[in-house]
Design a protein around this nucleic acid. Structure first.
Lengths: 219, 219
DNA sequence: TGTACATCAGTGAACGCGCGTTCACTGATGTAC
DNA sequence: TGTACATCAGTGAACGCGCGTTCACTGATGTAC
């Protein structure tokens, strides 16, 4: 017998549980209808609490949106991390970059609205908190590793910039490619195009760096 | 003396003028505060007419937003076209692609909110009209020309896809690069990064195609 | 174990505001005679 | 040229809805004795 439901015991625990359930309801709402479908009354109805209870756990809805965004970022990071080859037996940097891009595309497909919500800024004028930006930067870091092997002579600062640029380019292809309201791109075509882009950039970057091309016949 | 103001004479002409003035007011509103600042009452106040008059010229505000978008696309196209080198004395395809990308970045900078409005879809569930999609496709066509010279052996269909992909990549870099709410990128850095990307892709694409470089000595 | 009481998480009706769209009306325009 | 009348572009108050947030209240929880 004892506590069947995961209902919390202490007050603090109850609050934490309410917070989680609201976050889950918020995620569900966004997945069902986009960020604009996030409504205080709907959330309250979904978790079975009063509207006012939301404000005992979040400062306001924007605060909650940030919480959801943090979860999405964490999930995205988890989805991409395993793509990194085991420490030893490192694969070609190009392959790793290609897999990361593909992982990003797959994630966007699987959680399109949640993912798009990351880039819609509904926060009324308020600045994005620092911890949120750090979460984002961690994504770029994933790209920097293979990039470092691809361009070993590139200064670290330039490599960081490049990681961001590469991410942005991939993001652009995924974002416009999945936008079905405009000219829709068939799934396999999009896969192929994204891969082609990543390989072209990788090859081109290698060629730009000292040596390169006939010299980048790898080693 | 005679008609001083550009006030129209006939009824039809008056309507056309009202439409233009409303579009101008709408553009101004978006430039000042983004798409969300487009309010019927503000528009009426700006052009000095009644709220109801708007609906004698546009079906609703979404219809008007499409009209504004069409204007933005036309302006963007005008901004990019001259970038194409005179028919004779064609420059290197890479240079042309680089200049197109730079032109896109400059346009986005100069009219950021108007430009972003093109990609925000406020149209409630309604499909984007065909003429709007055609306007968009004309942009991709601008890229196809230099691409054709860069990859002469590429089938036309693949080239069209590639133009779209390249556009998306550039768009991504510009879009995230100008987003000041996230980690902001300094202007010159963004210029340089975008250029580096375009050159890398161009070089890489050339290397992918038969011929090229050391002959894709990979294998 | 029982009782009285204080605390405070949680309540939900109500506030306040914003805003797209409508429609019964008006007054200027232009036509007919 | 003048007059009476019909048309209809344009009016703007009002409708209707949505929605974030508040706050006076309540009832469950847990403590003190």
């Amino acid at each position: 017998m004892a506590e069947a439901q995961p209902s919390a015991t202490g007050t603090a625990a109850r609050r934490a549980e309410l917070r989680e359930r609201l976050l889950a309801a918020g995620r569900a709402a966004i997945e069902a209808g986009g960020l604009h479908s996030l409504k205080a009354r709907d959330l309250a109805a979904a978790v079975g609490c009063a509207v006012g209870a939301i404000y005992t756990v979040f400062a306001d809805l924007d605060d909650m949106i940030l919480g959801i965004g943090a979860g999405t970022l964490a999930q995205l990071e988890r989805a991409l991390e395993p793509q990194q080859a085991p420490q030893q037996a490192r694969e070609e940097p190009v392959e790793e970059l290609s897999r990361l891009a593909r992982g990003y595309l797959d994630f966007a497909r699987a959680h399109e609205r949640l993912w798009r919500a990351l880039f819609e800024h509904r926060l009324g004028g308020r600045a994005v908190p620092a911890w949120f930006l750090e979460d984002q930067n961690r994504l770029f870091t994933l790209i920097e590793a293979p990039l470092a092997r691809l361009l070993p002579h590139e200064p670290a600062a330039a490599r960081a910039r490049l990681a961001r640029t590469l991410f942005s380019a991939v993001h652009g292809v995924v974002s416009l490619g999945l936008e079905e309201k405009l000219a829709p791109t068939p799934a396999e075509t999009l896969d192929a195009e994204l891969d082609r882009l990543v390989r072209a950039v990788s090859a081109g970057l290698g060629a730009q760096s000292p040596g390169s091309c006939a010299g980048a016949s790898s080693s």
